[in-house]
Amino acid sequence: MRTFFALLLVALVSANSEGLVSLNPDNFKTYQNSGKTLLVKFFAPWCGHCKRLAPTYEEVAQAFAENEDVIIAEVNCDDHRELCQEHGIRGFPTVLVFNGEESKKFQEQRTVEELKKFVLENVPAKN
């Protein structure tokens, strides 16, 4: 029971008002293995491309804020270098979608429409 409340607290504290979750080494696996589709932006705060993507990515997070099957998240690679290395991040921003341990890289234009389409294409069909 304590574990449940601890995870709930982490989820509430980690998500900002736009529905965007900040991931770190302590909570990444919990979200990755949540049974939900997890879209993760790996970024560096000093990166110009990352700064340009930020408002678009926040809009995507808002679009999926009420979707119980999707989590939109980000990892600050300056703060969590080992986590980014573990996922093979070599450039910024890198966006990956996770369904459990399996991941797929986003390689389309960085628009709200393309990111939303990518997420929806990677949500497993419900039985």
Rank of each mutant, 00 (worst) to 15 (best):
A15T: 08
A11E: 09
P124G: 08
E68C: 06
S17I: 10
F28H: 04
L96M: 09
E66T: 10
V75H: 00
I71D: 00
F43Q: 06
L38E: 02
Q62E: 15
A44E: 07
K36Q: 10
V13P: 00
F5T: 08
N127Y: 12
L20S: 00
A63W: 03
Q109D: 13
L120G: 03
F42N: 05
T94L: 05
E82I: 05
Q62W: 11
L9T: 09
P25L: 06
L39K: 05
L39R: 04
S14Y: 00
Q32V: 00
F64I: 02
T37N: 01
I71C: 00
K116R: 15
E121W: 05
Y31Q: 05
E114F: 02
R2A: 12
Q62R: 15
E18W: 01
F28N: 03
L7M: 14
A65Q: 11
P124Q: 11
V112N: 07
R2I: 10
F4E: 13
E86V: 06
V13S: 07
V95K: 09
F118W: 04
I71H: 00
N127P: 15
A65W: 00
H87L: 05
C77H: 02
K126R: 15
L7I: 11
L53T: 07
L20F: 03
V10P: 03
Y31L: 09
F98W: 01
I71A: 01
I72A: 01
D69F: 00
V13A: 11
A73P: 02
V123G: 00
S17G: 08
G35A: 07
A65F: 05
A11D: 09
E58D: 07
F4I: 14
G100N: 09
A54W: 02
V119C: 02
T30D: 15
K51Q: 15
G100E: 01
N27Y: 11
K126T: 14
T37M: 05
E68Q: 11
E86S: 12
E68P: 02
F42E: 06
P93E: 08
Q85W: 08
P124L: 08
A15L: 01
L7R: 15
R110Y: 12
G91D: 12
S34I: 10
K105V: 13
T30V: 15
T3A: 13
N122T: 08
R52N: 12
R52T: 13
G19A: 07
K117L: 09
N24A: 09
K126I: 07
G48Q: 12
L20Q: 04
V60A: 13
V97G: 02
D78R: 03
Q62C: 12
Q32I: 03
P93Q: 10
L96A: 04
P93I: 01
H87Q: 12
T3D: 14
P55V: 01
R90Q: 14
K117T: 05
F28C: 06
Y31T: 02
P45T: 12
K116I: 10
E74S: 08
A65T: 05
V10Y: 06
P124A: 11
T111A: 09
S14K: 02
L23N: 05
D79P: 11
V123S: 01
E102A: 09
E113Y: 05
G35V: 11
